[in-house]
Each structure stands twice: as C-alpha cells, then as structure tokens.
Amino acid sequence: NQASVVANTLIPINTALTLVMMRSEVVTPVGIPAEDIPRLVSMTVNRAVPLGTTLMPDMVKGYA
C-alpha cells in the first residue's frame, strides 16, 4: 500500500506548507503520494485542512 500525505496539524487556508505540517501514512482513500512531500513544501492550501486529513491534489494550489 502506498503512503499518502496527511496533515500533522490543523493547516489554515492559504498557509504555505512546511515539512512539520505533513506526515506520511497509509490511508483510504489514497491522497497525494508521500514521495511528493518535498515538492509540496512552500505550496499553499486552498482550504483549511484539519489534523489527520489526507491531502488531496485539489487542496494544494499548483499541485494538480
């Protein structure tokens, strides 16, 4: 099973992502692959992402 990116904290809308905000976890449904974490750093989220939420491609500006 592939690990996905999961919010390690509440990420407010329009926040630039940092490494400490994200962790990898095997979850269903599958979200952004964990190997993309380095690429996500400094990208911003377009909605509030609660703790434990899987990051989906449409949640990160410029990812999809």
Rank of each mutant, 00 (worst) to 15 (best):
N1Y: 15
N1Q: 14
N1P: 15
N1L: 14
N1M: 15
N1F: 11
N1V: 15
N1S: 14
Q2I: 15
Q2Y: 11
Q2W: 11
Q2D: 15
Q2C: 11
Q2S: 12
Q2F: 14
A3D: 13
A3R: 05
A3E: 13
A3Y: 10
A3K: 06
A3C: 08
S4N: 02
S4D: 01
S4G: 05
S4K: 00
V5Q: 01
V5D: 01
V5G: 01
V5W: 02
V5Y: 02
V5A: 12
V5S: 03
V5N: 01
V6K: 03
V6I: 13
V6A: 03
V6Y: 02
V6N: 01
A7S: 09
A7Q: 01
N8H: 08
N8Q: 13
N8D: 12
N8K: 11
N8P: 02
N8E: 07
N8F: 05
N8L: 07
N8S: 14
N8Y: 05
T9C: 05
T9S: 10
T9Q: 10
T9F: 15
T9A: 12
T9M: 14
T9P: 01
T9E: 14
T9D: 09
T9G: 09
T9L: 12
L10Q: 12
L10F: 13
L10E: 09
L10R: 08
I11V: 07
I11L: 06
I11E: 01
I11R: 01
I11C: 02
I11P: 01
I11S: 00
I11G: 00
P12V: 15
P12F: 06
P12T: 12
P12G: 08
P12E: 11
P12N: 15
P12M: 11
I13Y: 11
I13V: 14
I13R: 08
I13D: 13
I13H: 11
I13A: 11
N14Q: 11
N14T: 06
T15L: 05
T15K: 08
T15C: 05
T15M: 10
T15N: 04
T15V: 11
T15A: 08
T15I: 06
T15G: 05
A16I: 11
A16C: 07
A16Q: 15
A16F: 14
A16M: 12
A16R: 11
L17D: 01
L17W: 02
L17H: 00
L17M: 06
T18M: 09
T18F: 03
T18S: 09
T18N: 05
T18P: 00
T18G: 04
T18I: 05
L19P: 09
L19D: 04
L19T: 08
L19Q: 08
L19G: 04
L19R: 12
V20I: 12
V20H: 12
V20P: 08
V20D: 10
M21L: 06
M21Y: 06
M21T: 03
M21P: 00
M21K: 04
M22T: 02
M22A: 00
M22C: 03
M22E: 00
R23V: 09
R23N: 05
R23C: 04
R23H: 05
R23M: 05
R23A: 05
S24G: 08
S24N: 07
S24Q: 13
S24C: 06
S24K: 14
S24P: 07
S24F: 07
E25K: 06
E25C: 06
E25N: 10
E25P: 01
E25F: 05
E25R: 06
V26C: 06
V26D: 15
V26I: 12
V26S: 13
V26L: 14
V26A: 11
V26Y: 09
V27Y: 02
V27A: 08
V27Q: 04
V27E: 02
V27H: 03
V27K: 12
V27P: 00
T28F: 09
T28W: 04
T28N: 10
T28M: 12
T28E: 15
T28D: 15
P29R: 03
P29Y: 04
V30D: 15
V30N: 13
V30M: 13
V30Q: 14
V30A: 10
G31V: 02
G31I: 01
G31K: 02
G31M: 02
G31R: 02
I32V: 07
I32M: 03
I32T: 01
I32K: 00
I32E: 01
I32D: 01
I32F: 03
P33S: 12
P33H: 07
P33G: 06
P33E: 05
P33Y: 15
P33R: 11
P33W: 07
A34R: 05
A34G: 12
A34M: 12
A34W: 06
A34T: 07
E35C: 15
E35K: 06
E35F: 06
E35N: 13
E35T: 12
E35A: 08
E35Q: 07
D36I: 06
D36W: 06
D36N: 12
D36S: 13
D36K: 07
D36M: 12
D36T: 06
I37W: 03
I37V: 08
I37E: 02
I37K: 13
I37S: 04
I37L: 15
I37A: 08
P38E: 08
P38W: 12
P38C: 07
P38T: 10
P38A: 13
P38Q: 11
R39T: 10
R39A: 08
R39Y: 13
R39C: 14
R39H: 14
R39V: 07
L40F: 01
L40Q: 00
L40P: 00
L40E: 00
L40W: 02
L40A: 00
V41C: 05
V41W: 03
V41Y: 06
V41Q: 07
V41T: 10
V41E: 05
V41G: 01
V41N: 03
V41P: 01
S42G: 13
S42V: 03
S42A: 13
S42C: 15
S42T: 12
S42L: 13
S42Y: 10
S42K: 10
S42H: 11
S42I: 03
M43C: 09
M43H: 08
M43R: 07
M43F: 13
M43Q: 06
M43V: 03
T44Q: 15
T44E: 07
T44I: 14
T44M: 12
T44H: 12
T44N: 06
V45I: 07
V45E: 00
V45D: 00
V45Y: 00
V45L: 13
V45S: 09
V45P: 02
N46A: 09
N46R: 09
N46T: 11
R47P: 03
R47D: 05
R47G: 05
R47W: 08
R47K: 11
R47Y: 09
R47M: 11
A48F: 10
A48W: 10
A48E: 11
A48Q: 10
A48K: 08
A48S: 14
V49I: 15
V49N: 01
V49R: 03
V49D: 01
V49F: 03
P50L: 12
P50A: 11
P50Y: 10
P50N: 09
P50W: 09
P50R: 08
P50D: 14
P50T: 10
P50F: 13
L51G: 11
L51S: 12
L51A: 10
L51R: 11
L51D: 08
G52R: 05
G52V: 02
G52Y: 05
G52N: 15
G52Q: 03
T53W: 12
T53L: 13
T53S: 14
T54Y: 02
T54A: 06
T54H: 03
T54V: 14
T54K: 04
T54I: 06
T54G: 03
L55G: 01
L55W: 02
L55N: 01
L55S: 00
L55T: 02
L55A: 01
L55K: 00
L55I: 15
M56W: 06
M56T: 15
M56P: 01
M56A: 07
M56S: 08
M56I: 07
M56F: 08
M56E: 14
P57R: 09
P57A: 13
P57V: 06
P57L: 04
P57D: 06
P57S: 13
P57Y: 09
P57F: 07
D58M: 08
D58N: 12
D58G: 09
D58C: 15
D58P: 06
M59Q: 05
M59K: 02
M59T: 06
M59W: 09
M59S: 05
V60I: 11
V60K: 00
V60Y: 01
V60M: 04
V60E: 00
V60T: 02
V60H: 02
V60S: 01
V60P: 01
K61N: 14
K61F: 10
K61T: 15
K61I: 14
K61V: 11
K61C: 15
K61Q: 11
K61P: 07
K61A: 15
K61D: 15
G62F: 07
G62Y: 10
G62H: 08
G62V: 04
G62L: 11
G62S: 10
G62D: 10
G62P: 07
G62R: 06
Y63A: 04
Y63V: 04
Y63D: 03
Y63L: 05
Y63N: 03
Y63K: 03
Y63G: 03
A64Y: 04
A64E: 07
A64H: 15
A64Q: 14
A64V: 11
